[in-house]
């Protein structure tokens, strides 16, 4: 966007992130007040939430940058690469992993997560994918369930 001889640039993603933090602070402050307005309940939360909101405003202001069109031809930051998309895929697999843990068991879910994420990150040897994922998931489930007595839900053991 251009304003006079200046080009105005907004770091949209960062602004949204700061906005989310501010929204959490406001919601939490209101939730705490709804629980009780006693000073003992709000002694820390209220001043901390106000300070956080002030910082959010200061940082949000910093996400709007104005510069002359000839001052910087390109915004700073590395050009996105094909590898950046890997994070999204692995994050999605992690969400799925946690979502199905209790339903298909730790060993099966871990096997599927390991094989899927290793594939997404570039491992292409099918035997390695199956053997490593299987051995790792089996060993972890066995160690936690039988050696450390952690009652992890499993499907096969």
């Amino acid at each position: 966007m251009k304003v006079g001889s200046y080009r105005v640039r907004v770091e949209g993603g960062h602004l949204a992130f700061v906005g989310a933090i501010a929204a959490f602070c406001v919601w939490y402050w209101l939730d705490a007040r709804a629980a009780s307005t006693n000073v003992q309940n709000l002694l820390l939360i209220q001043p901390a939430a106000f300070l956080a909101l002030a910082l959010c405003v200061a940082i949000a202001a910093g996400t709007v940058k104005a510069d002359r069109p000839d001052a910087s031809a390109e915004p700073p930051g590395a050009a996105p690469s094909a590898r950046d998309g890997r994070g999204l895929v692995v994050a999605g697999l992690l969400v799925l992993y946690v979502a199905v843990l209790l339903y298909i068991g730790f060993e099966v879910a871990t096997f599927a997560f390991l094989a899927g994420s290793m594939y997404a990150l570039g491992e292409r040897r099918p035997v390695f994918l199956v053997v490593f994922s299987g051995a790792f998931a089996g060993a972890m489930s066995y160690a936690f369930k039988f050696m450390l007595s952690v009652p992890v839900p499993t499907l096969l053991f």
């Binding site: 946690v98 843990l101 730790f106 997560f113 990150l121 570039g122 998931a137 009652p151 992890v152």
Partner: peptide, 26 residues
Amino acid sequence: VRVLVPSIFAVSIFGCYAITGNIAGP
């Protein structure tokens, strides 16, 4: 890294379950 990263995630999920004893950890 393609082996290390998923393995650390998986160990962490097991560890988190062990700490809380329920799905709240993961």
